Computed example of a mutant assay.
Amino acid sequence: MSFALNQILNSQWAMTEEALRLMLSVVERHADIDALEKIRGDRLNNSEKAFIRGGVGVIPVRGPLFKRANLMTEHCGATSYETVLRDFHQMLASDQVRSIVLDIDSPGGEANGCSELADHIFGARGQKPIAAYVGGTGASAAYWIASACDRVYGSDSSIIGSIGVQSALQSEKNQNEIRFVSSQSPNKNRDPSTEDGAREVQAVIDGLAEVFISKVARNRGINRDMVLGKFGQGSVFIGSEAQKRGLIDEVSTLENVISNYGAQKMTTDNITAEFIAANHPAIAEHFIRIGAAGENDRFKAEKTRVERIRTLAEGQVSGEFLQSLVESEVSVQDAAIEILMESKKNPKAPWQAIRKDHDRSLSGLDVPPSQSTGLDVVASEQDAAIELARKLGLTGGTHK
């Protein structure tokens, strides 16, 4: 048995029966692995297939799907998950790409690696609009991938669904082979043609299918029972029927999808700090500098406010009252009025002392000392406070 055929027969596949049989027939016709490996090496550097149209990154997902690039992906029209993933992240990082469309025409493929790719796509939602378009077949693993996108489109003749997993195995009975299995591992490599062996294989297949179903439910925003009840339990549906059942969002054409997604502009909801930091680091650094400068200006302004209030309050009010003014974040002009009003409520302070303290603070600002006594001081204190605030540069005019 060739290496390629052995790999197919010992893997689990999320793909249609017809496609699996076709893939088997192709490999059986090419059993010369040495020649195939040489061809594979020559074409390895041409694995990336994505392209950009009008700001839309288009990633082809065609033919049988494999976890890694191999003979089938190089020469038989197949696609590898690693190639799609690499192209997908390049599109996410590119400033030329506003949105991403997966152009799907695939019967499905290897279960191994499909879930990881779909999770990467699902996790990138919100960074850029992501859509899947099924132009021919979007079955099994191909639909698994499509469901991870924000929206799924299909042509009116597209074939969509086939949610499930299968495996093609051969009996290991060989009269010329003697095989020993460790006593601690009686379930290792059971013959699938036996009842116990079939039970082991079925458990693996069912487990993978359960992952498939739960991920499709998450991706489409529905519950598991709805997937089982409406998505066909392995059946496929044509475009409009697939839309009615909720497998796709809209029947359209690839050109319309590319045109619509190319016309989309980035909305403010998409422009988050994380998006700017990841896609426009220079702009992010600029915003950081502006923010730091603004924070420094606010600190300086607050320091000046507190210093001026302390100057006005010196010898006029208690320390507790001063602290309450500072913490209340009132302006210096309002604080001056509050300080004067509080000082006249203090019966222990004689009017002469109030006048002297206030005149002393005003004399440093070239304000003529008050010549009044007694109640005249109280009558003029508010005007003096406003004048003091003006001298401190807190107001542009005089108090009327």
Rank of each mutant, 00 (worst) to 15 (best):
257 V>M: 12
145 I>N: 00
107 P>H: 13
300 K>E: 00
95 D>G: 01
382 Q>G: 05
388 L>H: 09
375 L>V: 07
241 E>A: 15
333 Q>V: 13
229 G>C: 05
376 D>H: 05
317 V>T: 15
55 G>H: 00
127 Q>I: 01
381 E>W: 09
67 K>Y: 01
295 E>K: 14
135 G>D: 04
1 M>P: 05
216 V>G: 06
207 G>H: 12
326 V>G: 00
62 R>N: 06
22 L>H: 11
250 E>S: 03
230 K>Y: 04
113 G>T: 01
254 L>H: 08
373 T>V: 11
223 N>Q: 11
239 G>R: 04
330 V>Q: 08
382 Q>I: 15
225 D>K: 14
36 L>R: 12
305 R>A: 01
323 Q>L: 03
221 G>K: 01
267 T>I: 08
269 D>F: 02
197 G>P: 08
227 V>R: 12
20 L>Q: 02
98 R>T: 10
230 K>E: 09
293 A>K: 09
389 A>Q: 14
199 R>Y: 04
392 L>P: 07
15 M>Q: 14
32 D>I: 10
282 A>S: 10
190 R>P: 04
258 I>V: 15
243 Q>H: 03
192 P>E: 04
315 G>N: 15
136 G>M: 09
76 C>Y: 07
115 S>G: 05
319 G>D: 05
350 P>T: 15
200 E>Y: 10
261 Y>R: 12
82 E>G: 03
222 I>H: 01
199 R>A: 11
327 E>C: 07
349 A>I: 15
317 V>D: 08
224 R>Y: 13
118 A>P: 08
